[in-house]
Amino acid sequence: MFLVTGATGGLGSRIVRRLRQQEKDVRGFVRLTSRYSELESRGVNIFIGDLERDKDIYKACQGVKYVISSHGSGGKPQAVEYRANIDLIDAAKEAGVEHFVFTSVLGVDRGYEDSPVFKAKREVEKYLQNSGLNYTILRPSAFASSLLPLAERFKQTGIYLLIGDPQNRTSVVSTDDVARIAIDSVFVESAKNKVLSVGGPEIITRGDIPQIFSRIFNRDPIVINPPLFLFDGLRSTIGVLNSDVERSLGTLRTLLANEFFCTPEEITNLEMMFDMKMESLESFLRRYLGA
């Protein structure tokens, strides 16, 4: 039995579907308010709970062999990104779980103090490494699925909003590839007790993304490129009214201001370890957009 948290999310739903395609037993941890009927129809064992309740977490881990933590912060990095994962690790250890896969983020070890999410994920990494559990920590770059709404908007308007330096590099990764690696990590011996950077096969600039959209939809892009200091000004103004929102925007600023890409050597290592070929961003988008 696999327990997957964030089972209705962009990554979690793909993990769950792939596991069911492989006829694996899956327990999906979901909220009562989430849309989980599609997963239920695939034969997923639905566990309705709250990641802010340790009792729910401990109950969900009963009878589980593998745990894949793929939930996001939900706007609560301290409670959901940090505390819930700590409780999940403790519950997994108590339940005798054989392998724990944690989805972190590329660059989490760089000390970005402005990002509550990066800080929380880094502390969870360290806790997991010292827990005594067998683990795999995945540090993916930006998920390709996060660009699908932007692509649909571009299709309608031709407009692409790019805040900050368009020359910042990234290696956007197929969310389906991350799902496959998350699952296979529990079976591939060389992935045991490893921290793996996970990115797409190409290093591109953020300015390349609207050009990819342009090729897919055969229309010229209208790129709106406000400088980062305008974002900072807006964030400071918001902070006067709501300091919590200002702090939460620190993660977005971290993502906008820095480069997140994997080296060719890291990608080659992944492809060899998991016997796969990483999918390019353009291939992913064309597959999902039917273009």
Rank of each mutant, 00 (worst) to 15 (best):
Q62H: 14
A179H: 01
S131K: 05
D114V: 14
I267W: 01
R253G: 13
F29V: 02
S190I: 01
A191D: 03
E113K: 14
K155G: 04
V198S: 02
G74V: 10
S13D: 09
D184Q: 14
A95R: 05
V67C: 08
R83I: 08
A151Q: 13
R31A: 00
R110A: 14
L281M: 10
C61Y: 12
P149I: 02
K76T: 03
I203E: 07
V178P: 02
V186Y: 00
D87L: 10
S69Y: 06
V97Y: 06
F284R: 04
F29Y: 05
P210K: 09
F2Y: 15
F2G: 03
V223L: 06
S145D: 11
L234A: 14
I203P: 02
K24G: 00
A79R: 13
K121Y: 08
L3S: 12
Q22T: 01
F229G: 05
R83G: 05
G74F: 05
D177V: 05
L106C: 12
Q22A: 15
S141G: 10
D177H: 05
I159W: 09
A7V: 04
A179V: 07
S197Q: 15
T175I: 03
L150I: 04
A79P: 07
V26F: 02
V188C: 03
A291W: 02
F154R: 09
K59I: 00
V80G: 11
A84P: 15
F229P: 00
V173D: 04
D275L: 01
V124M: 06
